[in-house]
Nucleic acid binder design. Structure first.
Lengths: 215, 215
DNA sequence: TGTACATCAGTGAACGCGCGTTCACTGATGTAC
DNA sequence: TGTACATCAGTGAACGCGCGTTCACTGATGTAC
């Protein structure tokens, strides 16, 4: 079912140019990192004058915030699509690595070095918890015969981050641990710390994916 | 035994000012991130003119490279000191977290988002492998009754990164996995992704420290 | 111990540059009668 | 269908700023005889 586009031509055009600006922004971030992102440079690449961009974004910060939001959203959407297709924990892990490898700078914009003083807007934390929910769902669905861990009891008492999710303590632990282990392998790989070491990062990643299978 | 300082007063003074410049650089990085580091700003803070710093560093890049080297060195030295004091794997893990928490920006300078195009100088990889050696030592010293893992055989065939270290395959795996798991927990914690979640990062970290005990 | 010279730390002016952002404007597009 | 008006995208000039880096220089410190 396709919804009718009730937007006026002008609104459509606006949205289109906004999108084009963001695309150029991503290209620039990929080339020189997020801190080098420049409105003037984007305008030049688009064949426009610098001030023209202020019709579309109030300032540089708003553009970056929008990119961060989009990055979060794309991972959440990826997870949701896989979850709806019946994915298990291993599938989600694989999807996350693919998402990260597809665009490392997008990954780093969300999970990389934070800019001191920058505060993420409220709604990104909402998206972040949506991402976590998919992990919790998967961990709740497939519960291996687990030996209780010390961390379980701590998480059972500090489960604010899981909201109303019905995951039992061991699933809380598995989701969280999963999360951090994958990021450990991924971020070191993407940052280039494995280059020259000689082994295959994919094998390490897969091993980590399976590491919680029996626990 | 204290070695006699054979340096001339001028050399001593040079070294001293260099050190002072680096200190201000760290302070600036802590305040606004590495990408905001400015020679002129450092000079101003030191009450000097901008060009004066070019007596001590050829350019901005050389200063940053020096900071990266120092950061690597400080972690390697920490590990070495602990290892000489008979530390086990858990002690090293604890030392690493402490090292990271002591100065998050120093951690990020080494393990955070890489600047596209920046190539780390040769000798930092040498220091990095020294760090890995301490982990390998610890993993070789304490080998729990381990069930062989699929990753073991891959690493046994791709162990360039371990050099001539006599660690058996399971120790290679444990050292590497240890490394990535700690970074996963640490980098997410330092980047602030745990804030507001409600649990204690230290407990998660400790759990990860122990996660390889029986494997 | 004193003088002549070399070394070298630090200054101030200057370079070109690109940044984010504002402002008053032109000209095209859409809306109302 | 045609005219009058409002909306709004985009321009070009201008703002102040701080950056990395060079250069010719002054003045203090060290060295050689």
């Amino acid at each position: 079912m396709i919804e009718p586009d009730t937007r006026t031509p002008r609104q459509r055009y606006r949205a289109q140019v906004r999108e084009e600006i963001k695309q150029h922004a991503w290209r620039q971030i990929a080339a020189a990192g997020a801190s080098a992102l420049s409105l003037n440079a984007i305008a030049k690449q688009m064949g426009m004058s610098g001030p023209a961009l202020y019709r579309y974004f109030a300032n540089r910060d708003e553009l970056i915030t929008e990119l961060v939001r989009d990055a979060y959203r794309s991972l959440a959407d990826t997870f949701r699509a896989r979850a709806e297709a019946g994915a298990d924990l291993g599938d989600l892990a694989h999807a996350m690595r693919q998402w990260a490898l597809d665009d490392p700078q997008r990954y780093f914009l969300v999970y990389g070095t934070p800019v001191p003083g920058y505060r993420a807007p409220e709604d990104t934390t909402r998206i972040a918890s949506e991402i976590m929910t998919h992990l919790l769902d998967a961990c709740t669905a497939e519960q291996p015969p687990a030996t209780p861990q010390p961390l379980d009891t701590h998480l059972a008492e500090h489960r604010a981050w899981a909201g109303q999710h019905p995951a039992p303590p061991s699933a809380l632990r598995r989701a969280l641990t999963f999360w951090t282990r994958l990021h450990g392998a991924l971020s070191l790989e993407l940052a280039g710390h494995f280059t020259g070491m000689g082994f295959d990062p994919a094998q390490l990643y897969t091993a980590e994916t399976l590491s919680l299978a029996g626990h």
